[in-house]
Simulated scan of single mutants.
Amino acid sequence: MTCAYDFTLPALSGEPIDLSTLRGKPILIVNTASKCGFTPQYEGLQGLWTTWRSHDLMVIGVPSNDFGAQEPGTAQEIGAFCERNYHVTFPLAAKSHVRGPQAIPLFRWLAQQGGFLARPRWNFYKYLIGRDGTLVNWFSSITSPESRRVRMAVERAVMDH
């Protein structure tokens, strides 16, 4: 059976993000964009990362230009924007396709696991992977990282040993 830990993402900085090195850790995967109305969610994602990384939570942003061409930048521009405006320190993957036939394998797997409604329809869809590598929950763009739903789900995933 395939699980999230079976995937590797190209990193924004070039080297791969090998999810197998995160085996046993919960992961919050988010398709991101720098020029979206939801872009301020980077702040909430950074907050979750800051709060829970000592409890093994990994947050990974996956920049994508798939929705409204809202991530037009280069890798350097995306990294600088996130650092300068939101002080992002969690890992960012390289700009990737997250929907349709060109979607990267991880996002094809997430769509398969979550079903039709879980497929990203805009930027900032959030996918929570449990310590066992399975998709435990997903949240649409309108559900902010600071929302009670996301915070409680992350806390449950982190505390589930």
Results as ranks from 00 to 15, higher is better:
Leu12Lys: 05
Leu12Asn: 07
Ser13Asp: 15
Gly14Trp: 07
Gly14Val: 09
Glu15Gly: 11
Glu15Tyr: 06
Glu15Leu: 12
Glu15His: 05
Ile17Ser: 02
Asp18Ile: 14
Asp18Lys: 15
Leu19Ile: 06
Leu19Ser: 02
Ser20Phe: 03
Thr21Phe: 03
Leu22Val: 05
Leu22Ala: 12
Gly24Trp: 08
Gly24Pro: 04
Gly24Asp: 12
Lys25Thr: 06
Lys25Asp: 05
Lys25Met: 11
Pro26Thr: 06
Ile27Thr: 06
Ile27Asn: 00
Ile29Phe: 01
Ile29Trp: 01
Val30Gly: 00
Val30Pro: 01
Asn31Ala: 15
Thr32Gly: 04
Ala33Glu: 10
Ser34Leu: 04
Ser34Ile: 05
Lys35Leu: 13
Cys36Ala: 15
Phe38Asn: 13
Thr39Glu: 13
Thr39Ala: 10
Pro40Gln: 09
Pro40Asp: 08
Pro40Leu: 11
Gln41Val: 13
Tyr42Met: 08
Tyr42Gln: 07
Glu43Tyr: 04
Glu43His: 12
Leu45Ser: 01
Leu45Gly: 00
Gln46Asp: 12
Gln46Lys: 12
Gly47Val: 08
Gly47Lys: 13
Thr51Leu: 15
Trp52Asn: 07
Arg53Leu: 08
Arg53Cys: 14
Arg53Pro: 04
Arg53Ser: 13
Ser54Asp: 15
His55Leu: 09
His55Gln: 15
His55Phe: 14
Asp56His: 11
Asp56Met: 06
Leu57Tyr: 02
Leu57His: 03
Val59Tyr: 01
Ile60Arg: 00
Ile60Pro: 00
Gly61Leu: 04
Val62Ile: 12
Pro63Leu: 05
Ser64Asn: 03
Ser64Ile: 03
Asn65Trp: 09
Asp66Tyr: 08
Phe67Asp: 00
Gly68Asp: 14
Ala69Trp: 06
Gln70Asp: 08
Glu71Ser: 05
Thr74Ala: 13
Ile78Gln: 01
Gly79Val: 01
Gly79Arg: 10
Phe81Cys: 05
Cys82Tyr: 07
Glu83Ala: 14
Asn85Ala: 11
Tyr86Cys: 08
His87Trp: 05
His87Gly: 14
Val88Asp: 00
Val88Gln: 00
Thr89Trp: 07
Phe90Ala: 02
Pro91Val: 03
Pro91Phe: 00
Pro91His: 03
Leu92His: 09
Leu92Cys: 09
Ala93Ser: 14
Ala94Ile: 03
Ala94Asn: 10
Lys95Leu: 05
Ser96Trp: 07
Ser96Phe: 08
Ser96Gly: 06
His97Pro: 02
His97Tyr: 03
His97Val: 03
His97Asn: 14
Val98Lys: 04
Arg99Gln: 09
Gly100Asn: 04
Gln102Arg: 13
Ala103Pro: 02
Pro105Arg: 06
Pro105Lys: 08
Phe107Cys: 06
Phe107Tyr: 15
Phe107Ile: 02
Arg108Val: 05
Trp109Leu: 08
Leu110Phe: 13
Gln112Gly: 14
Gln112Met: 10
Gln113Leu: 10
Gln113Pro: 04
Gln113Ala: 15
Gln113Thr: 09
Gln113Gly: 07
Gly114Gln: 08
Gly114Lys: 06
Leu117Glu: 10
Leu117Asp: 12
Ala118Asn: 13
Ala118Trp: 04
Ala118Ile: 09
Arg119Asp: 07
Arg119Val: 08
Asn123Phe: 10
Tyr125Ile: 09
Lys126Trp: 08
Lys126Ser: 07
Lys126Asp: 11
Tyr127Met: 10
Tyr127Ala: 04
Leu128Val: 11
Ile129Tyr: 01
Gly130Cys: 06
Arg131Trp: 10
Gly133Leu: 01
Val136Gln: 14
Asn137Tyr: 03
